[in-house]
Each structure stands twice: as C-alpha cells, then as structure tokens.
Write a protein that binds this DNA or RNA. Structure first.
Lengths: 148, 148
DNA sequence: AGCCCGGTGTTCAAATTTGAACACCGGGCT
DNA sequence: AGCCCGGTGTTCAAATTTGAACACCGGGCT
C-alpha cells in the first residue's frame, strides 16, 4: 500500500501548496483557476455549466456558487443559450482571460518544480499512463463501484 | 502536462469515490476514517493533536472540529497529557476501533479495485517511488516554495 | 524569581462544499 | 395538443474548511 499512501499524501500536499500560491499570486483558488483555464481552452471561451462541472468533477451546485463569485469579480459572465432556454453558458471575460495569463506562468512553474522536476521522464510517462487508465476505469464504472 | 492532468483527475475522482463509499458504508468521511486509522496504528492508540494534524496534512482548527464531532459520536476521546498541560491526546475508543475494523475491508477492497488492480506491479512501484520523492521534496522545502 | 519567545489547542466569523428539493423546459409518445 | 420522463441550473440549510486571533503554558535566559 506504499503507492496508495504516497498518492494521497502527494495529492493533499500539492493541492494545498498550489492553492496557497494562486491565492497569493492571483487572489483565486485552485478551483477558480481551473475554471478559468477550461473556459480559456474551450471554443468561443465558453462552456455549458454542466459540461464545466463534469470536466472538473465538481457538483453542479458547487459550480453555481463559484461562477456566481467569479461573476461578481468580473472574471466570468453568464449567457443563456438561444436554442435551449434551460442551458446557461459561462463565458470568460477579458478580465478573466487577463488573469489566467498573468497567473499561469507562476502556476506552471510551481507544478514543474514540485512534480515534474522531481521525476524522470520515464517515471512521468508511467505515471501519466497509469493514472490515465485509473481515471478511464473510474469513469466507465461509476455505478458498478457504487453497487459493489 | 499529461501526467499532471491525469494526476489531478485521478486524485479528485478517487477522493470523491472513497468518501462516498465510506459515508454509505460506515457513516464517516474519508478524513474521519484516516483519523481512526492513524490512531489505531499509533502506540497506545493515541496521538497528540498536532502530530495528527501534521500526519494528515490538515489544519489544527480543522482537526479540532473533526475530533469534536467524532467525540460526540463516541469514536474518539480527548485526554490531557500529565507532563505538559498544553498538550491534548486524541484516543481511539473501543467503538472507534470497532468501526475501523468494520469499515476497513470495504475501503481497502475499493482502493484495490480502483487503483491497484488498474496498474501493473512495475507501474505501482514507479508510482510509489516517484510520488514518495515528490512528498519528501515538498516537506523539505515548504518555506522555499512559498518564497519563490 | 522574572521575562520573553515559541509552541499548544481552541474559538470565531467568513467562505466554501454538499446534497436534497425545487422550478422549469425539451422531446418522445399518444 | 396533452402527458410524462429526464435533464438544466438554482436555491437552501446544514456541514465543513480556512485562517486569524486568542488564551495559555514551557523552557531558556538573566
């Protein structure tokens, strides 16, 4: 179970550390940063609320809260969908775009320092392959796992 | 950055899934389960509050809250230290011990199913070595990272 | 003995997360 | 057209987390 212990420790520490840095650096949480990044990478810089929640493995209500906060801060804007009245798009504003661009270098550098530089290229590839498979398995059998 | 993406995805999914199972299975959160396990493994089934918080990479106030909750549930008991009036020990009660023993098999089985069984022995060793190194590096330079 | 720095665990308010309930709409069926 | 199932995003209360402030004590120094 050495792998498991290392995994949860690394996970907790990395999250804590990155959250800290982003908060000092850009005044946003790691989750808010991820929201900005996803929106920035999406076509038209906008995404459906549900799609965004799924991409971040976050609850719908949690996302509603965060988007509301970020809208107050001017980083994001809500837009309703013309073809489906129920749907809501979250759009990246220019201020949001500017903030990601300002925060990204430091964030990427810290990830590199804490994770990438600690490992060999081979270790990184193994880690990416292995955890990628873990993620695909979990997404494929969420109900099976809950049942058994 | 494939490794990084896989890592945070796996981390979020695993945590969510394990939390879910423990809540259904034993009525406790993943954090509470970890507290019980650490106490169970400690000599005398007790630990200083600060030592416990450090071991779980948790804040002191967060631990105070959780221990209070668990004390109400009868899983844990507070004991003050005779040699240092400031110190407080959290001790595992018999009910707490019984709960871990009841919850552990299912938890371990799920970890095995979701993580261990998805990977080869070689992948597991690489992952344990790599992430272990990451953890040691982070613990060694927490202040350095905050400064740069 | 007296002072002071650093460590201990708790308290508090504010922020965030969680999950259930909700209002509302789309689309398939008759 | 009318019904109904399932999906959309939000609201709400309760639980939890966060971080600063706090009260208190230990131990080294004089």
């Amino acid at each position: 179970m050495r792998a498991w212990l290392a995994f949860i420790s690394a996970s907790a520490l990395l999250n804590r550390c990155l959250d800290q840095q982003l908060k000092e650096d850009a005044g946003i949480s790691h989750l808010q940063y991820e929201i900005l990044v996803r929106l920035g990478a999406a076509p038209g810089r906008e995404m459906r609320m549900t799609a965004l929640a799924d991409a971040l493995y976050n609850s719908k209500s949690g996302l509603t809260y965060q988007v509301t906060q970020m809208e107050k801060a001017g980083l994001v804007r809500r837009r309703s969908c013309p073809s489906d009245v129920r749907a809501v798009y979250a759009c990246l504003t220019e201020a949001g775009q500017a903030l990601v661009e300002r925060a990204a270098p430091g964030h990427v550098a810290l990830v590199r320092e804490l994770l990438i530089d600690a490992l060999s290229l081979e270790q990184l590839n193994t880690l990416a392959d292995g955890l990628g498979k873990v993620v695909r398995r979990m997404l494929g059998q969420e109900t099976a796992a809950a049942g058994g």
